[in-house]
Design a protein around this nucleic acid. Structure first.
Lengths: 258, 258
DNA sequence: CGTAATTTTGACGCGCGTCAAAGCTTGTGG
DNA sequence: CCACAAGCTTTGACGCGCGTCAAAATTACG
């Protein structure tokens, strides 16, 4: 799927008129690989007018809250975390600009997890029922919604596989490479990463103790595969890192299309 | 969502004319909580005509095969398994009658995993593009597809949480309780389970060594919480098992609606 | 009924979680 | 702009849960 073929004009993004050139557009994920009629464009535009800003540590939504909308991240990073037994939280995802969260609430019509800003973030509110209606009249939008949910399923399966079979070091590298690719898609550097979440959040996401994550970082640093200081991480050898986790292509085969 | 309100007549299921009374109907998952016009019914019916039988150990589809359809399980159990690094497989799900698999292929238009019959199974082929078309004219079908994918997202997150935070024993019990509920929904006993997969498959699914699973079963048996012999497992005390994993309601809050 | 696959059992070791304490950041108020 | 406090991160010591290996017991299947 060639990103350069995106042709929808999108008024929510102030820095561009066509999504094909603007990788940080909050609606990159909803922008369609096919052209839309002017009418469709204006309707889609109408859906995405409302914005919300969520400051660091604040909730976008909480578990058990009624479901009204999904959210496209415009800037900043959010995390979704589930309550595990007992009291402990488990982070199931970090959500970068251009990504959409909230799909897991459709079934029960309530959010099954908390969504919290890891750093101050801005999101675009996409009222679900309006999106649904619109999807009926715009086939490529319907397809795109299914594609996005499908991708999330795929990614969750990848995460499950990593959790079940990979040792600590590989899990960390898998996560770093995932961030690298997603940042690259946003036009940022794939090697100089700014990870605003705490070590504790990252280790929780990976199913590790913070101490273990720290030790893994130390070891990777000793092998000069990366350099980490605070929230800045520099990956020195992407190829070597990819090789470490036994791949380079297959792990994230799906991640470029969207 | 009251199952008794299901009113769609479904010709693919020979044992009933209305899904409200037939819990084993292969299309239970697609049957809608709202009534449909006679025209809608016949169109939906047309989509689900084709069947496939898959014998034990045979593939329904393989990783990287092009995507054409999702599949509703009519009878038997299938597993979906991903290739992990290196050579090792990781089972990401078991699929019981009434459940639908294949949604994770929409994004890349190719199946990201293998689907194999754990015991001889029969599935209903649901050509995706016809389903998509139909969803445009039947809003409640569109909604239902989104709900099903949403539920799978939710369940994957639950699995992730269990994998990341629960010790071996709890993971096993969580899985057993999940099977119990799903069998119950099919009108089978929630306490006398027939688990056709091998211990190796079950342990793989749980991210454990077969030896560990065996020992966990022995311990649970010693506490007379259950009795396992071969593929037959009898749960003696559902309440105690639920308490063991710190819950009974919240873990599967979403599982009854569908 | 015999051979292969699966399951169980025991012994053992290691990866990673836990605990505790010492650096290091970050943010706030004087 | 510095000082102090609260939180975050790192380090080391230690123990345990679970994976690994090996072999016996059981089951499945031709």
């Amino acid at each position: 799927m060639d990103v350069s073929r995106l042709r929808i004009a999108c008024s929510t993004c102030s820095t561009c008129s066509t999504c094909s050139t603007c990788s940080t557009c909050s609606l990159a994920q909803l922008c369609l690989p096919f052209s839309l009629s002017a009418r469709d464009v204006s309707e889609l535009d109408g859906v995405v007018q409302r914005r919300r800003t969520i400051h660091r540590r604040q909730y976008l939504y909480r578990a058990d809250e009624p479901f009204h909308a999904v959210y496209a991240v415009r800037s900043g990073i959010l995390k979704t975390s589930h309550l595990a037994a007992y009291g402990e939280e488990q982070i199931t995802g970090f959500h970068l600009p251009g990504e959409i969260l909230g799909w897991d609430a459709i079934m029960s019509w309530a959010h099954p997890c908390d969504a919290v800003a890891v750093e101050t973030a801005s999101v675009c509110v996409l009222p679900f029922e309006r999106l649904e209606e619109l999807a009926r009249t715009i086939p490529s939008l319907q397809r795109q919604i299914l594609r996005l949910m499908s991708r999330e399923l795929f990614q969750d399966h990848e995460a499950l596989v990593a959790m079940a079979r990979r040792p600590a070091e590989e899990r960390v590298v898998v996560a770093l490479l995932s961030f690298s690719e997603r940042f690259a898609r946003l036009g940022r550097s794939p090697t100089a990463l700014r990870l605003p979440m705490t070590r504790g959040e990252l280790s929780n996401y990976l199913g590790l103790a913070p101490e273990t994550l720290s030790r893994v970082f130390r070891r990777l640093q000793a092998s000069s595969l990366l350099r980490a200081s605070g929230h800045e991480v520099v990956l020195h050898d992407l190829a070597a890192l990819r090789q470490l986790v036994g791949d380079g292509a297959s792990v994230n085969r799906q991640s470029q299309s969207g």
